[in-house]
């Protein structure tokens, strides 16, 4: 017995896949439904999983001990003032706090988590290591330098700079090829997921097969 949920799931899957033939009202219906449901889901989730346990429940249980929570609550409410033209400017106060916080977080995050460790990783030794590692380190260093020079636009790309940046293009092309291969793998996985559902959860039970 195929449940109504599986039928709805199969119908919406076919609606989305129908776009491969051409754009049509079924596809647009499924697309709009998905967008609307996603928004509704997110609002419900944020309320149930974040606002209730981290804001409202502590305030209800122990107001004096949780009074500091009124500050982020007020900032959150301020954001909605943008819909009242007369006091819309007040929303900027909350935005300023959010932007300031996340700039601070991101600045350290990028510096400690990307710039420094990634720069450190490009400082590689070519002596005192064995065999194939020398070759890989040389390729790595050549790749970093040539790609960086390709993105150096303060001088015309001719002569030595032109030749090195040409090597950089080759490195970039190889990396784009690897990314393309991974992208195909990801998209095929999605297709496989839908086909597997259609075959194993919908068609096979309909035909009475296990």
């Amino acid at each position: 017995m195929v449940s109504i949920g599986v039928w709805i799931n199969a119908f919406l899957t076919l609606c989305i896949l129908s776009f491969l033939y051409k754009d049509n009202p079924f596809f647009r219906f499924a697309e709009s439904l998905f967008a609307g449901m996603s928004l509704g889901y997110y609002i419900g989730l944020a309320n149930q999983q974040t606002l209730m346990p981290n804001l409202f429940m502590p305030l209800f249980r122990d107001f004096s001990g949780s009074v500091v929570l009124l500050i982020p609550m007020a900032l959150g409410i301020l954001l909605y003032f943008r819909y009242i033209p007369r006091i819309a400017w007040m929303a900027r106060l909350a935005l300023a706090v959010y932007i300031g916080y996340y700039i601070g977080v991101m600045f350290l995050q990028k510096l400690h988590g990307e710039v420094l460790p990634q720069s450190r990783d490009t400082i590689l030794q070519l002596r005192g290591i064995a065999g194939i590692d020398v070759l890989w380190n040389a390729v790595f260093i050549a790749g970093v330098i040539s790609v960086l020079l390709y993105f150096y636009f303060s001088a015309e790309h001719k002569g030595v700079l032109g030749k090195v940046s040409r090597v950089g293009i080759w490195f970039l092309m190889i990396s784009f090829g690897a990314s393309f291969g991974y992208t195909i793998m990801a998209r095929i996985s999605l297709l496989m997921g839908r086909f597997s559902f259609l075959v194993n959860d919908w068609i096979r039970p309909l035909m009475g097969a296990s």
Binding site: V105, L108, Q109, K110, H112, G113, E114, P117, Q118, R120, D121, S175, A178, S179, Y182, T183, M185, A186, R187, S189
Partner: peptide, 30 residues
């Protein structure tokens, strides 16, 4: 780039294939 870098917790990522190439840079850098 935040939890591992700032707090030193070992991190493993299981990601979608489309985002795998960018993670190799982090993996290689330890």
């Amino acid at each position: 780039n935040l939890v591992n870098a700032q707090f030193g917790v070992p991190v493993a990522v299981g990601c979608t294939a489309v985002s795998a190439p960018k993670y190799y840079a982090y993996l290689r850098a330890g």
